[in-house]
Simulated scan of single mutants.
Amino acid sequence: MTRLKNKSPEQRQIESDHFFAELEQQIVKQLREDASSPEGREELIRSTGIHDTELIDELGKLGVTADGLMALRLFPLVLVAWAEQNADASERDAVMTQAVRQGVREDSTAWVLLDQWLQKRPPGIGVDAWKRYTHEMFTEMSNVAQNRLIELTEKQMTSVAKASGGHLGFGKVSAKEKAIIHQIIESMKRQR
C-alpha cells in the first residue's frame, strides 16, 4: 500500500497503461491460438462455409475467429486509416464508429481485432486474407449485393479518410488515401 502512495499520478498511469497493453497482447495471442487450433478452424469452416484452406490458415494467423469475421470485412477501413503512415485518433474513432454501425460490439472479438490493427499496423497477410475472404463472399452474392457492398465499403473508407481532414486538415481526402480507396475498390471489383 505504501508503494502505491509513493508513486506519482504519472507513474501510476504508466503502470496502468503497461498492464492493459500486456493484457491486450495476451488476449490477441489467445485469439491467434484459438483461431489456429483445429477446433477454431472447424468452427470457422462450419459457421462461414469457407473451405479455402489457405484463407483459413491466414485467418488463424491474424487471430480471426468465427465471431471476429466482421473485423476482416472492415479491414479496408483500417488500411485507409494507415494510409498516412499512422492511424490517428480521429481515424481510429471513425473506423470504430463504422464498426458499431455494422453491429460490432465492444466486447466482441471483432472489436479487439480492429482495435489491435488500429494500434499497430496489421501484417501484410491481412490484405491477402481480406482478398480471399471477399472472393469467397462474392461467390455467394448476387451482382446487386456485390455492388452494394462495394459502394458501402467505398463510403465507409471515405468517411475514415475525411476524419483526419486529409493531409492539411481541411476535411479532404489525401492523395495517399484516395489511392488506397481506389486500389481496394478495384480489387473488390476483380474478386467477382
Rank of each mutant, 00 (worst) to 15 (best):
A81C: 09
A110G: 05
G103Y: 10
V112I: 15
N86I: 09
R3H: 14
A87I: 03
A163G: 08
S36Y: 00
I56G: 01
F138D: 09
E186R: 12
D93C: 01
I150Y: 03
L69H: 09
S164E: 10
V64F: 07
A99R: 01
A145G: 11
P9M: 08
Q191E: 15
M188H: 08
S164C: 14
A110V: 06
L55V: 02
E10W: 10
M157L: 06
R192G: 09
M96I: 12
A161R: 08
W82R: 07
S37I: 05
G40K: 00
T2Q: 14
R101S: 10
N143M: 10
A145M: 14
V78M: 06
E10V: 09
K176S: 09
Q183Y: 07
V127H: 06
S187H: 05
F20E: 11
N143D: 13
I45H: 01
T65R: 11
Q146N: 05
L69D: 04
E154A: 12
A179K: 13
H167P: 00
K120H: 12
P76R: 04
G166Y: 03
L31N: 04
R105M: 13
F20A: 05
R101E: 10
R12Q: 13
W111K: 10
A94G: 05
Q11H: 12
L77G: 03
D107W: 08
L55Q: 02
A99E: 01
F19G: 02
